[in-house]
Design a protein around this nucleic acid. Structure first.
Lengths: 375, 375
DNA sequence: GCGCATTACTGATGCGCATTAACGAGAACT
DNA sequence: AGTTCTCGTTAATGCGCATCAGTAATGCGC
């Protein structure tokens, strides 16, 4: 593209072929025989309504319509010192090829709430697959162009985020994130939800439980475990009522043998943590099937979260639903508050219990199942 | 910079409690001990490289990094430059609650290509469900904040878009859109794809066809019909080889009676257009099932597009796949060209034939099926 | 007919940036 | 020593708009 060829005319470098650029307030003003300031004030329709005569108002509005005036958003935002932009930054691609891994449910809520509040969203592509601005240590810096930013994903670079937060940049993390002092976040109340699920199982009569969880210490996992344990306590059960089993690879780890072992110990209810891939849940179901267990006749299963999308045609797991859409909306609300300078406290979002079809009363008498059962 | 008076504070209306607003070029300049103009020039990194001493350059860059400087997109825009932002404007919510209706597959490509070219994306929420800025006749005007904008969806307000285009604003529509003179678009080559499908069916021996299409005249429908007809011609068949059936509500329209009627006329291959809901395809399958037809033994079915997601566990329809991800990427490429001032021609994107399992040779002898068949 | 409040509007200013004319200080040349 | 060049940098300007301090005009009381 031609750079500084023509010495004159600084603005509008190359882009346009537009001969008739769209009208400015100044032109409307001229057409209406008033000043630019008048046009601005009238079009902004300030509440001090009586400030202008109806005559003038009419002239301006007519002229604006006549000329097809449309305000320049860039100028508007520049003058107003904010741009009504909220950033969304995820450290994996926002739209991964496999939709199951995406933040889609969150984004639904984010978009709705942002729209309701008159914000537009900036999707920072910095992180996605080998993008241009990808690696740079200041990749995160770009988010400053928005009035505030939402962060998604597990592996956000702490240092840079800390910097943003320290600068007073409004930032909200979707999902709990305590380790970064001062970072606002919204999260689901996994503790309560986990407690509730265990409570329901206990109500059904179960007395011994196993929790299968991931082997890292993400808050989402830790909270679920805590809820699991609290549920036991709340049900008046003692310590060995619950076994917490950590597994880095449930598929090879949750073997029929192990399952039988637990059954032999009197376990009747199995609780799996929801993971990205649903591995724990899959492994559990597979083990049950292999073992010939009928669910929920011979054993009850619960899933602390939602089942993977590809299992949607199977039996609905007992467990809870994470209100992802609401979470997204709540995050935007919180972020909007921060941007506005208020520092609202956003409570944890409540998960809703999902009765499902995989839990029932425990078998009064444990018997080794003989035949292949279906679920 | 101190003005004569300072009591007023006009900018920054009420918004911030921010002690540290994000840094401006002026602050970088102060930190580096140079002028704002120097900062601007150095950060712009003009090719007249030797213009600044390495010393100065380094100081400026360091200061900028130190302070976390990020240019204000609005100001950049206003000063007639680029801001590396591409807009995405969809006239239904970009993230509808039901994911099947979403532009997700397109967005995957859009994000990838945008990232690869160093653009961030602005999702304009103007249109989504009851948003704040929803109705306003200038809802579209906001996109001017970005360097260019992508438009998705069937029902874009033509008037406003025309205005943008007339003003020389870089705009690309995803999907064919001829009626708006001068609007760039990228689309799938439904004509060729439709022709190919019919060709394959003809190769299998089919001689009489029915196309079930929507009753409006969207380009996507018209193109498919054209492809269908061209396919017949290419196969050396005459006019009455193909029946085009328009249906506004296939579910009630494609009755078993009607199906039998067509069969009686010697039709052996049924081609359905892909629609949002997959209604035509569903209706066709349902009618076959009710009639007891076995597919593809008794009749062949083809779908001009992809099946609805919830039918993913059924037999794969013969037909073609729309390369949505590639389309999204192509749209971004085209838009980027426009922004750069080039006016590249982007060809139609080719759909790929999908063999599927619903087409086979026609029955040599037509017989009324007696028993319930499965598909 | 003067002071004073109100009304109706305009002038001036700056938001943050890109751009360019101009400037000071050598270096190179006459 | 004076002149011209070149290099490195800065002052000045304006993009389109919102905002606010003024100002001219009018009304009102006394």
């Amino acid at each position: 593209m031609q750079e500084s060829k023509k010495p004159s005319r600084r603005g509008r470098p190359a882009a346009q072929g537009a001969r008739t650029s769209r009208p400015r307030q100044a032109e409307v003003a001229r057409a209406a025989g008033v000043s630019q300031a008048t046009v601005s004030l009238i079009l902004a329709d300030k509440k001090d309504g009586a400030a202008f005569s109806d005559e003038t108002r009419r002239k301006v509005l007519d002229a604006a319509r006549e000329l097809g005036y449309v305000p320049d958003p860039a100028a508007r935002r520049l003058a107003a010192a904010r741009n009504n932009l909220l950033g969304v930054f995820s450290f994996t691609a926002t739209f991964p090829t496999e939709m199951q891994h995406s933040y889609y449910p969150f984004l639904v809520g984010v978009e709705q709430e942002a729209a309701a509040r008159g914000y537009d969203l900036v999707l920072f592509t910095g992180s996605s697959s080998g993008g241009a601005g990808a690696a740079g240590p200041d990749a995160l810096g770009r988010v400053r162009l928005a009035d505030g930013c939402l962060f998604l994903g597990r592996h956000i670079p702490t240092q840079e985020l800390r910097r943003l937060v320290a600068d007073g940049f409004p930032a909200v993390h979707l999902g709990r994130r305590d380790e970064l002092e001062g970072l606002a976040w919204v999260g689901a109340d996994y503790v309560s939800a986990g407690r509730e699920v265990v409570g329901k199982l206990a109500d059904l009569g179960h007395r011994r439980f196993v929790l299968i969880r991931e082997d890292d210490d993400a808050p989402a996992s830790t909270d679920r475990e805590q809820g699991f344990l609290e549920g036991l306590t709340a049900a008046g059960l003692d310590h060995d009522a619950g076994t917490v089993h950590r597994s880095a690879d449930p598929r090879r780890d949750i073997t029929p043998e192990r399952l039988r072992g637990w059954l032999a110990e009197g376990v009747t209810a199995f609780v799996a943590e929801e993971t990205d891939t649903g591995a724990a849940w899959r492994a559990l179901r597979a083990a049950c099937r292999t073992t010939g267990l009928q669910v929920p006749r011979d054993a009850s299963l619960a899933l602390l979260g939602s089942p993977p999308a590809d299992l949607s045609h199977e039996a609905v797991p007992t467990g809870f639903d994470i209100p992802r859409t609401q979470l997204g909306a709540a995050a935007v609300r919180l972020l909007a508050s921060l941007v506005a300078g208020e520092d609202a406290e956003e409570p944890l979002v409540t998960c809703t219990f999902r009765p499902g079809e995989t839990a029932g009363p425990p078998p009064s008498v444990r018997q080794q199942p003989q035949a292949q059962g279906d679920m």
